[in-house]
């Protein structure tokens, strides 16, 4: 039964990784943009959700929506500020700018929300399910279900609709796409807004599992790196598989080798893979 429980633990961890990584996958893969403030956006999403529940008194589902809206607005603001760099495809500067904005978000949230740890009340993180000797929470079920549904919807949207090819055209060459009558600025703005609200959703779902602090975000962003690169930059199915796979890897590496070294092991795996296949797992 130990193995069965570890599989559950792995799926719980992995669905969390995949859920948080979705926004980045789209941003990086479809629009070829990077956002090193991702971890701090996750933190902010969690704190906005907490604020909405604990301070304003909104029910959990409404609080999730509130967090998504707040972060979408923030994302629109960030992207508008960075638009010139995006249009000139100055990726080096973009990376550093988002790193700096992450610092600003962290400092600002610490001033705004204080340094105390908080827990999110009213979520399903304490609603436990027992299946014989196995256990998980309804929150875990919710995370897994929403993650699978989201990846499905996003996959359909980018692969099966006209909009998906428009976004890819913009990523390929924004200037050329504009010649064909596509407003590249709007496309970039929408993609970035999607990234921010997706991470807010991820935070609202995953963060209730443990106490939240304004100093968090680092672990989440490095796990997102691993998921996105392992899955093959921008491959939606790849990211989902990589997220779940990484969760199972963490659980079994932890159960049979040494849980304290899982981050290092995941990164070593990533380094090794990049040497063999620089474009990630999903490439043929």
């Amino acid at each position: 039964m130990n193995v069965a429980q570890q599989i559950i633990n792995g799926l719980v961890l992995g669905s969390g990784y995949a859920c948080i990584a979705l926004g980045w996958t789209i941003l990086l893969g479809v629009a070829r943009l990077v956002n090193f403030a991702h971890g701090q956006l996750y933190m902010l999403g969690a704190f906005v959700t907490w604020f909405a529940i604990a301070k304003i008194g909104l029910p959990y589902p409404v609080a999730i929506l509130a967090a998504m809206i707040v972060l979408a607005l923030l994302g629109a603001l960030m992207q508008t500020a960075m638009m010139r760099l995006v249009m000139t495809q100055n990726l080096t500067s973009l990376m550093i700018v988002t790193l700096g904005l992450g610092y600003v978000l962290q400092g600002g949230s610490a001033l705004l929300f204080g340094g105390n740890p908080q827990t999110l009340p009213g979520t399903l993180a304490r609603a436990k399910v027992d299946l014989g000797p196995l256990w998980f929470t309804w929150q875990d079920v919710l995370v897994l279900a929403v993650t699978l549904a989201l990846y499905g919807v996003v996959w359909l949207f980018t692969q099966k609709t006209r909009y998906g090819s428009v976004i890819r055209a913009v990523a390929e060459d924004p200037k050329l796409a504009e010649l064909f009558g596509v407003n590249a600025r709007v496309v970039y703005l929408l993609v970035f807004v999607f990234e921010c609200s997706a991470v807010a959703l991820g935070a609202a779902l995953v963060a209730p599992r443990s106490p939240i602090l304004t100093s968090m975000g680092f672990n989440e962003v490095i796990m997102t790196f691993v998921v996105v690169v392992l899955g093959g930059i921008g491959s939606i199915g790849g990211a989902l598989l990589a997220g779940l796979g990484l969760g199972l890897f963490t659980a079994f590496f932890g159960a049979f080798v040494a849980p304290a070294y899982t981050t290092a092991a995941a990164f070593a795996l990533l380094l090794a893979l990049l040497v063999i296949r620089p474009a990630g797992l999903a490439t043929k």
Binding site: A81, M82, R84, L85, S93, I96, V97, L99, G100, L101, G102, Y103, V104, L105, Q106, G107, G108, A110, L111
Partner: peptide, 15 residues
């Protein structure tokens, strides 16, 4: 505040 200053300097200068 030092974090905010360091981060904004980085972002503002490059933008």
């Amino acid at each position: 505040w030092n974090k905010i200053i360091l981060g904004s300097v980085l972002a503002i200068v490059l933008i």
